[in-house]
Amino acid sequence: MTAIYQQLSSLKVDRSSGHPKPHKVCLLLAVIELIECGSIAANRIVLNTELEEAFSRHFSKLKKGNDKDDISKPFYHLQTEGFWHFHYLPGGEHCLQQAKAPSKAKLKQAIAYVSLEQSLFDALVSQDARARCKEALFANLEDLSEQYYRWMIATGRSEKTANNYLGAIRGSISKWVSAEGITEQNLIAITGYSSFTGIAEKIAEYKVFQCSDKRGKGMYSAALNSYRDFLLDTGQAHIKEDIAEIIGNDKLTTTEKTQWVSTRIGQGKYREKLINHWGGCAVTGYKSTSLLIASHIKPWRAADDQERLSEYNGLLLLPNLDKAFDLGYISFNDKGRISLSEQLETPAILGVDQDMCITLVKQHQDFLAYHREHIFRQ
């Protein structure tokens, strides 16, 4: 159950407007409501009037600013979370491939129904587990201070370090960037990875920052790097850039673009390859594949087309292990034994220990060598 709650609490929500958009949360809350009242009795979710009305009820309570009541976006984009599976009408899959942002009408024409991963559906049917699922969903709507703190703890920082970094970003460093005329906005409110990176690079050049960072033995630099990693991870900045590049490639057909996007987000045939190879989590053996993340070992941007498609350039991991691997807090040696970064202060919180290992074949070696040299934090 822990893996289910963790996945529900870390949905890929849109924060481009300065706050977390509630659309995915509201759709899942609507599904839960219809399960509770008996309208959804089987693992079969239809985009109908009853679901739309339930979505709107939750949305009216959670919306902010200019958020628009539009069920089509979460209904379509929840497929990237790994537990929301489309069952198409005849010709429906091809119909959706032609639409970049399908409307509600287009979705109804293409999709007969959606099913959840069975383990998640079973949890939503259970009254006790359902309550915890709701709590997990609301974690996606926390402000960035709370989410950043939780992210640091989840990626192995101690409570002391997490408090120090949060205080530095929200307090001292924000005051310095304001005093130097870089921005009046508190840094903890910045949600854009590129925007924050530009500000961080500027303040790092100022004497007030350099002197304080030296006295603090690099703590302020570490805090900036930590928050940058947080925005990169939760905002999926690299993924968005890579997908934009794929869509803008005029040499690719529409079908090829769809296939490449699926590969980039760890879905489609690439995900199937990793499931066939690993059979479950590469480290723990956990078998419920809907809760596992298909991730590249050698990052997409550093890989060529053949490497991007290779099942040997991928690991199938539980979300906590995937995040630690992606951020360079863990890696694996050429024998498959885990390597822990010294920067991973509390590995036990992640369920990580020195005895973990994966089973490698020779085709994995070059990819893992790249990860150890370029991604792993020594």
Rank of each mutant, 00 (worst) to 15 (best):
L51G: 02
T359P: 05
D67T: 00
A303D: 05
H19N: 04
N249C: 06
I375T: 13
F376D: 01
Y227T: 01
G82V: 01
S39A: 11
I330M: 15
I199F: 10
R170C: 05
I375A: 11
K335T: 11
S226L: 06
L360Q: 03
N164A: 13
D353V: 03
S226W: 06
E245W: 08
H87A: 06
I182T: 02
P90Y: 03
F230I: 00
Q343T: 06
S288C: 13
Q365H: 09
A105Q: 12
Y312F: 07
I4F: 07
Y113E: 09
F83H: 00
C26I: 01
K240M: 13
H77W: 05
N140I: 01
D242W: 12
R215K: 12
Y227I: 03
H23D: 09
I358D: 04
S221F: 08
E345A: 07
I203H: 06
I71Q: 01
D322T: 00
T183Q: 03
L34R: 12
S119L: 13
I153E: 13
V46N: 05
D233M: 05
L78N: 01
E142W: 04
F367V: 07
G328R: 04
K240W: 14
I32T: 09
D334M: 08
D334T: 06
A30K: 00
W84K: 03
Y286C: 00
Y76V: 04
A223D: 13
R150A: 15
Y270A: 02
L8I: 04
A204T: 11
S172A: 10
L78S: 01
K214N: 07
A30Q: 03
E142A: 08
T254I: 07
A112E: 13
F196K: 02
L141F: 11
Q259V: 02
V177R: 06
A123V: 01
F376G: 04
D67V: 01
K106N: 09
C281L: 05
E373R: 12
Y329N: 11
F209G: 06
T155C: 12
N43L: 00
A101N: 15
D14H: 01
H374V: 02
T258L: 15
L141Y: 12
I349M: 11
L27K: 02
G268V: 03
L11R: 00
A154D: 12
T191I: 04
T80G: 11
D366Q: 08
E52S: 14
Q185M: 10
T255P: 03
T289H: 00
S331G: 11
S16F: 10
D366A: 14
